[in-house]
Structures are given as structure tokens and as C-alpha cells.
Simulated assay, not measured.
Amino acid sequence: MPKRIPLQRRGRAKPKFRPRTHKSLGKIELPKQENTGIILDLLHDNIKSAPIMKVRFGKDVMLLAATNGSRVGENIMIHKLADLPEGSLVCNVESRPGAGPKLIRSAGGAGRIVGKEGKLTSVLLPSKEIKKIHSECRAIVGRVAGAGMTEKPMLKAGAGFYAMKAKGIIWPRVRATKKNAVDHPFGGGGKTLGKKKTVSRHASPGRKVGSISARRTGKRRGKK
């Protein structure tokens, strides 16, 4: 019986390939009405990169990505983008009014308000993209805590393995050309693939690797 390559095994989504979402503390969200809350606790979440703060808004207790300098017992304010001046740093930003925080929630992330035009506010994201968001969307002023997370060295391979395992990522990743022929279509032989990289859309599951049904390959030259 032929051996299933990892690409086929991943498609079945067995526990090995799933993120450990059952260890997550919960969903990050904003209240519907209240705009002022008090921080009850600062927590660590295995799934998320940033620290999490537990905040009480009236009768509701919700989770948010913690901002720099957050302390237990402090008050926290939620602002509409329309009420904030240009140049303000924001995080936990809604993508649509009332949708809850969807943007700028990872450790060390911060967006900057760079302009306003009618009902839209332009926000410079950490990726350097400028996104236009409805001015009624809400956000928290400040930068997400945990900015030095990526500067901490792994020191050993096992630490990196378990860090990726929490997110459902198989690590370390071996290049296809370095595998045996039984493990991957590009495996075995020398340094090159030894065959075409493009495959048909209707190829068998064990062969569907590389550029699948590519319209064109190679470096794009000229204006077209």
C-alpha cells in the first residue's frame, strides 16, 4: 500500500495538525454599550501572543489584548475613531461598527491614525498598510503589550517545537527536495526537483504539490 505524504495526512485535520484551541481563555470582544471598564486580572493565553486582560464592563466580564502599562485595578476607556485626533496610537480596533476587535491584537502591535475623510478614518497598520475604517468603529488607545516576545531566543529546538505545536504548525519544516522519494514527489535524487513543478488541477492527491494549475510560471518581465 502506498504511503500517504504529510500533505494528504494534514487534509484529514487530525489532532496533530489542529491548534490547541481548547486551551484558549476565550474570545476577545468589546461590550455593546459600556465604554468604561476596570481591569480585574492579567492572564497568559497559550494560543495568543499578547497578554490578556480580564475587564469588567458593568455586569459583563470580557477579555481584551492587554496594552502597555496595564495594571490590575486601573480603568480602561473605549473610544470611537471619530473622537481620537490624528497621530493617536490604537489597538483592539473594530473592522466594522459593533463587530468586536479584529485588528491589531498581536504582541507589540499598534496602529496610528493618519487621516480622516468623511465617515472613514485611515489607520496605519503594523504591516505598513493604510486601511480605511468607518469612524464609528471603536478602539483602545495604546500599544499591545509583549513587544519583546520575538526577541527571546528559543535556546533549543524543543522550545520552538512546542511553541509551534500550540498553533497547530508542524515544525521544523523539511524542504521537499531533501526528503526521500517515498515521502514527497520532489524527494530523492539530487538538489533539483527532477520533474515539472506545475501539476494539473485534476492530479491525484499524492501528486498535487508545487504550482497547482498555474496560469504561468517564471519571472514576470515587461509591463504585461
Results as ranks from 00 to 15, higher is better:
V144L: 06
G98V: 00
K80Y: 10
V114L: 14
H134R: 13
L125K: 06
P126C: 07
H134A: 03
S88L: 08
V123M: 01
F161G: 07
E86W: 11
Y162L: 10
P101A: 00
S135N: 03
P126F: 06
L124Y: 14
C91A: 10
G111N: 06
V123K: 12
I104Q: 04
A110N: 07
H134V: 02
A110K: 09
G108T: 00
H79Y: 15
K131Q: 06
H79I: 05
P97G: 05
G118D: 05
G111S: 12
L103Q: 11
H134P: 01
P153R: 14
E136I: 02
A107I: 02
E94W: 08
D83V: 03
E94I: 11
S95Y: 11
V123L: 06
A139G: 02
P85S: 11
G160Y: 10
C137L: 07
I113R: 03
G87H: 12
N92F: 03
G115P: 02
K119L: 12
E94S: 04
L103E: 02
R112S: 07
S106G: 00
G100I: 05
G100T: 04
E86I: 14
V123W: 07
L125I: 10
T150W: 08
K102G: 02
S122K: 15
A139M: 01
A145K: 03
A107L: 12
K132I: 08
G111L: 11
G100H: 04
G108H: 12
R143I: 00
L124Q: 12
C137Y: 03
D83N: 08
R138D: 03
V123T: 06
K119Y: 08
D83R: 09
E136L: 00
R96Y: 15
C137A: 11
E129A: 13
I140L: 15
P101F: 02
K152A: 12
A147Y: 11
N92I: 00
N75E: 05
M154L: 14
G158C: 06
T121C: 15
A145F: 04
K119N: 00
R112W: 01
V93M: 07
G148H: 10
K102H: 10
L89N: 08
R138M: 11
L120D: 01
I104P: 06
N75Y: 13
L120P: 03
C137N: 08
G148P: 00
E94R: 09
R105I: 07
I104R: 01
G142H: 11
T150E: 10
E94F: 07
E136R: 10
G100M: 10
A157T: 04
E151L: 13
